[in-house]
Design a protein around this nucleic acid. Structure first.
Lengths: 345, 345
DNA sequence: CTGAAAGCGCTTACAG
DNA sequence: CTGAAAGCGCTTACAG
């Protein structure tokens, strides 16, 4: 029933006594139509409830206005926040996000052909990595790809990443300045560049300082992983004075296990720092010191790169670093109980 | 450059020495093509890197396979989680979610015409309410609309909501069973049905019990709002023994302010319950008693309704209730210090 | 099983 | 400013 009533431009044209061209121009921004013609078309369109078929327009103009957005880990407030601003910024730029939720990282290669079939004008990928084979295919199809927070070796896809090493270094210097020498690190997912870069930035600074003791665990970026990592690090004979977790979720878990299972007070007995600064809004009660990745700025740059490459497909892929900032709060404090590190070194 | 190389079905047909029809059939599931023809077409397609243009297919088949998904408040883990499963389930059903992020609740009326122009086969709305004018327009266009967690008076749009009253009642009975008589409620956003229904379900039970004292504050579903509501309720002369917050975020805030600013121990001095059960994954350390809305089931039903109405546009809009479940954890406990309520009643 | 032809609903040079 | 005509890239009865 509803299909039968579908109004097309020809119906409007007939009612208004004009050509389909005139109808089309009335609904095309910047097209030249006489005021009187426009009025008659608009009246007829309103009467019939006409709305131009965007699919047909996409086909003829060869511009879909659609951007493929590949997300995953929406449970992580960091990525939820990212999708929030991303969706909003794309809309503001006149583009529509076609969402692809990729639960297992592998499935992204199956998703992309669908995206390309939809003639997306670009693809933005967050929290997942494109295989280089797929990146090459996008390149060949002339579809720009921008990854946020990940990058690929070959320059087939653009990327915007936080300067993770710098972020790790900021935390290290902060903890060292507070007098901590026995330090712990909790990695996220081992084979992600984000975790590896945060760690190397952190370690470089720590190893430069004298008489430091290091320990390390892996938490997979999850709460449960953070709990287990905390149990590991805190049950050793000499407990670290300060622990840096590669994201906030793990830091929160670590604070929970430290206070509940080990009876530690934070920051008096243990300083804890995280990464993402999602704790500011999600866990304000913890007062977690963290590294702010500046999500808005990252997303802005990603959209800017995409728009640039849509406007000029000959532009090469580019990589941009966003500078992180340390947000110091109550979870880190000057070292208190001095452990006899000299005896161990 | 890239556009020049765009491969169409005719190119494949020529290379394979067949008609465009044969090419089309090769890429249409269930179409009859001779094995040999299919092979030749597939070889030619692979050689040219051909991929059918989904936009053109949408136009001719009049099926876009696109579902408009209107979201907001992605910062709230409840809605982030909902979008996560929603995106996944739509994909599994062969539909593609076109995302519209609507920051201010009003903008939804501007969004919908765009959605309809894209010939979406349906619309799913979460955390926002469609105006009845727009609902009527969708009805007229024959585009089914399903709202999750909201509903409209007239039956123009389908909806799936949690049985919020029942959820509120579950909490009330739980707290009453624990012996609490002086109870507080923290509302979310006043004019949402979710908050109002949770409140009325809670209140009905409480008022049925003898000698109860009630207090109330509004928290707008946010952390900051929860802090202020907590300050309000806890600074009165007779403090409530148990507080029910209309969502988890506010409950977490209330626990924070209760322990930090008022030195209360939870649950010894104060029992707290929330709604959504997002605390289970987001704030496991708080052990918050909460009402599980069963997101997966809600989303499943919404998608089922949508699929049904896409398959048969004559189906009427329907409304479904999802049964919530109380998850009891450590934030609620039997009443301890008995306040002399008799003197006040 | 296969191909020629019509058509989805629109836009856009082109000539007037 | 306006309209007739071509065409975007595909699918699908239809006849063979």
């Amino acid at each position: 029933m509803s299909d039968a009533r579908r109004v097309r431009s020809i119906d409007v044209a007939r009612l208004a006594g004009v050509s389909r061209s005139a109808v089309s121009r009335t609904f095309t921004a910047g097209a030249s139509v006489a005021a009187q013609t426009r009025e008659r078309v608009e009246a007829a369109a309103a009467q019939l409830g006409y709305r131009p078929n965007a699919i047909a327009r996409m086909l003829i103009t060869r511009r879909s206005g659609i951007v493929g957005v590949v997300v995953s880990e929406l449970q992580n407030p960091f990525y939820a926040r990212m999708l929030d601003t991303l969706g909003y910024q794309l809309q503001s730029a006149g583009l529509m996000p076609l969402l692809f939720n990729c639960r297992d990282a592998h499935s992204i290669d199956d998703l992309l052909p669908k995206l390309l079939a939809c003639q997306v004008e670009g693809v933005i990928i967050t929290a997942a990595t494109l295989s280089s084979r797929m990146a090459a295919e996008c390149l060949r199809a002339g579809t720009p790809v921008v990854m946020i927070n990940r990058y690929v070796r070959d320059g087939a896809a653009s990327s915007v990443v936080c300067a993770n090493q710098q972020g790790g270094a900021l935390v290290a210097r902060h903890l060292l300045d507070l007098g901590h020498r026995h330090l712990g690190f909790v990695a996220g997912i081992e084979d992600t560049s984000s975790s590896a870069d945060r760690e190397s930035g952190f370690m470089q600074q720590v190893l430069r300082a004298p008489n430091t003791i290091l320990c390390r665990a892996v938490g997979g970026y999850t709460y449960q992983g953070g709990i287990e990592a905390g149990r590991d690090l805190l049950s050793g004979s000499t407990r670290p004075q300060a622990i840096f977790c590669a994201n906030d979720v793990m830091a929160i878990a670590l604070m929970d296990i430290a206070t509940e299972a080990f009876g530690l007070r934070i920051p008096q007995d243990l300083s804890v720092a995280g990464f993402d600064d999602t704790a500011r809004t999600m866990w304000p009660g913890y007062g977690l010191t963290s590294v702010d990745q500046n999500i808005d700025s990252m997303v802005e740059q990603a959209v800017a790169i995409l728009l640039g490459r849509i406007a000029n497909p000959n532009l090469a892929a580019e990589r941009r670093l966003v500078t992180p900032e340390l947000r110091v709060r109550g979870s880190t404090a000057p070292v208190r109980s001095v452990i006899p590190t000299a005896a161990r070194s």
